[in-house]
């Protein structure tokens, strides 16, 4: 059974949650996010991440600011908005619930 294929909708759906979580940790720019995700089951690419980030910005979950870099043009550094932090908190709680549901079901 191919887990990657079977759970593609789940990883896709969870990606936004994880990106929120990464951005909550520190101001990051896209290569940082990709690098943090690269070793996990949620490894993704610019082609997916940029459209996702722009959607999240439209929903006012994240915002970015331009920062000069020592090598090359200025970079976009992303950070969470208040709305983004609230959503992250809610999602974390929901995730805990799911975890507990998964653990408790089928157990005597």
């Amino acid at each position: 059974m191919d887990f990657n294929e079977k759970f593609a909708p789940i990883t896709k759906g969870l990606l936004e949650f994880l990106v929120l979580k990464i951005i909550a940790g520190d101001k990051v720019y896209v290569p940082d996010i990709l690098q943090q995700l690269s070793a996990t089951e949620f490894a993704t690419q610019e082609g997916t991440l940029y459209p996702l980030l722009s959607k999240m910005r439209r929903e006012q979950l994240v915002d970015y600011e331009w920062k000069e870099s020592e090598s090359g043009p200025p970079r976009k550094y992303y950070e969470l908005t208040a709305k983004g932090r609230a959503q992250l908190r809610e999602t974390m709680e929901f995730w805990q619930q799911i975890n507990e549901t998964v653990k408790s079901l089928g157990k005597k």
């Binding site: 896709k12 690419q45 082609g47 997916t48 459209p51 996702l52 959607k55």
Partner: peptide, 12 residues
């Protein structure tokens, strides 16, 4: 870079 996914791809 991977394929660029439109509105449908990233917004379930």
């Amino acid at each position: 870079m991977g394929p660029v996914q439109g509105a449908g791809g990233a917004a379930p």
